[in-house]
């Protein structure tokens, strides 16, 4: 482990081995992907996307701590900020979709094709 930050004192995160973090975020991410792929309700898809983002966030934080490098955590804040903005826009779009189709089924939105 290179460049130990403030000596060898372990943070709380490091009490759990890194592999568990990897496993957890992989599972979360896969759930997110599958949710996006197989659900038709736009809100659920939206939530799945958030799940994927947060799986990545978790991994970033874990690595950041293990490598004693704060850049990863800074990056997480950016992702959260972007996700918040995305939610604002995305929910607004969903509102409009619902008003037009009286449903939140994304398969109704298939007009843009050949």
């Amino acid at each position: 482990m290179r460049g130990g930050w403030r000596g060898n004192k372990m943070s709380a995160i490091q009490t759990i081995p890194i592999n568990w973090y990897l496993l957890l975020s992989t599972v979360l991410f896969t759930i997110g992907v599958l949710g996006v792929l197989f659900r038709r309700n736009a809100i659920i898809i939206f939530m799945s996307i958030e799940l994927m983002l947060n799986a990545v966030n978790l991994l970033l934080v874990a690595f950041s701590s293990y490598l004693s490098d704060s850049k990863g955590q800074v990056f997480v804040f950016f992702i959260m900020a972007v996700a918040a903005a995305e939610v604002a826009v995305g929910l607004a779009i969903l509102m409009m979709v619902y008003r037009n189709t009286k449903s939140s089924d994304i398969n109704m939105l298939n007009k843009l094709k050949w």
Binding site: V36, L37, F38, I106, N107, L109, N110, L112
Partner: peptide, 11 residues
């Protein structure tokens, strides 16, 4: 024809 308009398919 690949461009079906179905978002699920694209993803």
């Amino acid at each position: 024809l690949l461009q079906t308009g179905n978002i699920g398919f694209y993803v």
